[in-house]
Design a protein around this nucleic acid. Sequence first.
DNA 1: ACCTGAACACCGTTCAAGT
DNA 2: ACCTGAACACCGTTCAAGT
Lengths: 251, 251
Amino acid sequence: MAGMVMRTRQSQRRRQVLSRERIVEAAIGLLDTGGEGALTVRALAERLSTGAGAIYHHVGNMNELVQAATETVVADVLPPLAGPGGRAGESGGPEVSEGRPEDRIRAVALGLYDAATEHSWLASRLAVQLTRAPRGAVTPRIFESMGRPLRELGVPREDWFVTTSTLVHYVLGATTQNAQATDGPGAAPPDTEEARAAFLDTASRAWRDLAPEDYPFLHEIADQMREHEDRAQFLAGLDLILAGVTASRPR
Amino acid sequence: MAGMVMRTRQSQRRRQVLSRERIVEAAIGLLDTGGEGALTVRALAERLSTGAGAIYHHVGNMNELVQAATETVVADVLPPLAGPGGRAGESGGPEVSEGRPEDRIRAVALGLYDAATEHSWLASRLAVQLTRAPRGAVTPRIFESMGRPLRELGVPREDWFVTTSTLVHYVLGATTQNAQATDGPGAAPPDTEEARAAFLDTASRAWRDLAPEDYPFLHEIADQMREHEDRAQFLAGLDLILAGVTASRPR
DNA sequence: ACCTGAACACCGTTCAAGT
DNA sequence: ACCTGAACACCGTTCAAGT
């Protein structure tokens, strides 16, 4: 009987070369390589050595596919959701209930930030996803892992939703902003270290070239913009918000 | 001589029915009505009673057109950039140097928020724009008007860039998140008051249906999510960040 | 100079036909 | 059940030809 099951599974696996998982995986590959413009049904079919129509047997449409890709990538960087007791889950990511609450919030934020840096297409999709599919798998996990530490920070119960939303919105905005935009037309931010330095230098100079009467502030921060480091900046902004969270709580 | 100029201008105006401005205007109309999916060269050409190719005489390509539309909409809601002295500019929006600094930051943020609410396509485009075109017209204006009041708040000079970026990122994220997504497939958030209530109700119920051991926090805030009001929430989040800004400053 | 509109090289999606 | 691939109805963009 065990043999029968084995044989069934094997033959299924042999014949069913195509699966939703394999398609999503291939889609992520195409997205990473060439951005959203590179993900087409035909390119996908070729990479999977199949016909265009076969894709539609496992995936409803293109939009659903990109959503699945987003969910897959994000799920990998979120901490497992064991209960508040803190037992370990089996998925990747750090523990959700260990360490200081600020650090746990930072860990989730950084996980999303790094994922968005690695997958340039992620940020813009993530934003859409959170709005449209609050029943999707990742939205609840993001809110749960970002918000849970707030209790320990002493945030009053009635502020939990606002505070969590604010944190998520910041992460979303910063992440979108810093995403390498390899997609579509327009001057894409650079990939290499020195190209990035040149990019910042040009941007900084552009600010300095503005009329000083109209843009006195930009003139004053042009240097800081040239020298800033994205990831450190992201963390500093997060700490600013956390300072607000701590300052607002009653004692 | 004045007559000659007049005649030239008139005949130009008569013949040149098409102009970059008119095209951008029509594009905004299409975007507002049907989202990014509704903006096609053919639809644009029909609305302007012309051929498809004519568009390309005034606009480089589709992407450039959407960027121009974004710039136009955003420019209308930003305060005029008179010097720190505070004389009035001639464009729309409130004064940049009047009132308490917190209120001026709120005004800019709300202007962007309201614009994004009115133009559902704006948010996602704005995010892209800020990254790719730091020399564009709106990015400097946003940073200048959001950051200028920071001096009066007592934020130390070396924190100006981080603080401004954090504020902009939050606005960007919140705005993207709350944007009515009429575009593309997927369940679009609703337009009417009661449809929105139903939407929030469903979303809140979805959180409540999650396993309580894994999502204890979401269970606790499900009610707040159902009852929250987007704009008030947006402002509350902004105030949270401003609290952090104030808390971090040396005194 | 400005505009026309057919033509080109793509898309996502469907569907009869095959195995 | 799963897959094939031609066909359909779209795209953005180009370009010879007109005025």
